[in-house]
């Protein structure tokens, strides 16, 4: 961890300008992942630009009945927000499934999206890792990978994205609001994170210097209910082996809206588009759920020690969807 500068941003524009002026600068919000990675020698910023005190800490209803969540809203506050709990319980549950109470009090919405993989090779600078040092190799393919990807990985990287929140946001059709020197834009959360391909060093489609300023949740489709369920090695305070976020609306026994996302399976939260196509219009039965999950997971290419994830993900999706269908009945 080398000495570094520190600038407290006075505004979003100020933050962007400082970033542009300082190569190697990094934005700092809650710091719960960045400081960890700096201590490990994985992150080596020249300057930290502190955005935590920017006025991005509000949760507001949008005109259309959705929610706009500021980037620095803390995880615990977002999980506790009455509108999140009532309209988007999957989001609240996903946040409460992550980390610990202490971490959730510091971690922010933007920072949570930008968490980096917990792959042990990525965190250990004495070992190769294509994500950390492009071209150095990926020991996880043959090495320790029980927790790593079964979908969408490449020979260059089999890391998984560790966020719970991002999985729920993916299923809830949320979008990420970004500000850069050249303006603002929004990306669906499902497109915000990348698959590794041959550029595993890039986790997201964030452009250099761009700042996450917020997350927008669209209004809830009529009659839809959502839930988040996480499977882990211990009862609390552990990263997901597999998680499922799902939203379902059923009318007269038929599925009229379905959204499904998996965590712990891929380099990004895995939106199950194939499954959703099969679900919409199908009867809300266990058989439909199972067929849909199976269709989605056909593409899985498990590694030596993580094949259990594939069926676990499918079975968990069936269970969560079944519960949602039962509740909605």
């Amino acid at each position: 961890m080398r000495p570094h500068g520190y600038v407290r941003a006075r505004s979003v524009a100020d933050a962007l300008a400082v970033h542009a002026a300082h190569p190697g600068a990094r934005y700092l919000a809650g710091g719960t992942n960045l400081v960890d990675l700096m201590k490990l020698g994985v992150a080596r910023p020249t300057v930290l630009i502190d955005v935590r005190r920017l006025p991005l800490d509000r949760v507001e209803e949008t005109a259309g009945g959705g929610l706009l969540v500021g980037a620095t809203v803390r995880n615990s506050d977002l999980a506790a927000h009455p509108l999140v709990r009532s309209r988007y319980p999957a989001l609240s549950q996903s946040l409460l499934s992550g980390a610990s109470g202490q971490l959730r009090n510091a971690a922010t919405t933007g920072g949570n999206l930008l968490q980096r993989t917990r792959c042990g090779y990525f965190q250990d600078v004495s070992k190769p890792c294509n994500k950390r040092e492009p071209g150095s190799g990926c020991p996880a393919v043959e090495g320790s990978h029980r927790e790593l990807a079964v979908l969408g990985h490449s020979p260059h990287c089999v890391a998984t994205h560790p966020s719970d929140m991002a999985v729920a946001l993916t299923a809830l059709d949320a979008s990420v609001h970004l500000r850069g020197v050249s303006g603002t834009r929004a990306l669906p959360v499902s497109e915000f994170h990348r698959l590794p391909g041959d550029r595993p060093e890039l986790d997201t489609r964030l452009r250099p210097g761009e700042l996450v300023v917020g997350v927008e949740l669209p209004p809830v489709p009529p009659g839809a209910r959502c839930a988040y369920r996480k499977v882990r090695d211990r009862a609390s305070c552990a990263f997901a082996l597999v998680s499922v976020a799902a939203r379902l609306a059923v009318e007269n026994g038929r599925i009229v809206h379905a959204a499904l996302a998996f965590g712990g399976l891929a380099h990004r939260p895995w939106r199950a588009w194939t499954a959703e196509e099969r679900l919409v219009g199908a009867p809300a039965t266990g058989a439909s759920f199972a067929r849909a999950a199976e269709a989605e997971l056909e593409a899985a290419e498990p590694l030596r020690d993580n094949a259990f994830k594939v069926r676990l993900a499918g079975d968990l999706a069936v269970q969560v969807l079944g519960t949602l269908a039962g509740e909605g009945a």
Binding site: R118, G120, P139, G143, S144, R234, A235, S236, C237, F239
Partner: peptide
């Protein structure tokens, strides 16, 4: 578990090596 290629334990910190928490 032992990392066969590198010769160290794969689970060296308290995020990877799961000692029981209160909820367990």
């Amino acid at each position: 578990s032992i990392d066969v290629r590198f010769g160290d334990f794969a689970e060296r910190d308290l995020a990877a090596y799961h000692v029981p928490v209160s909820a367990d």
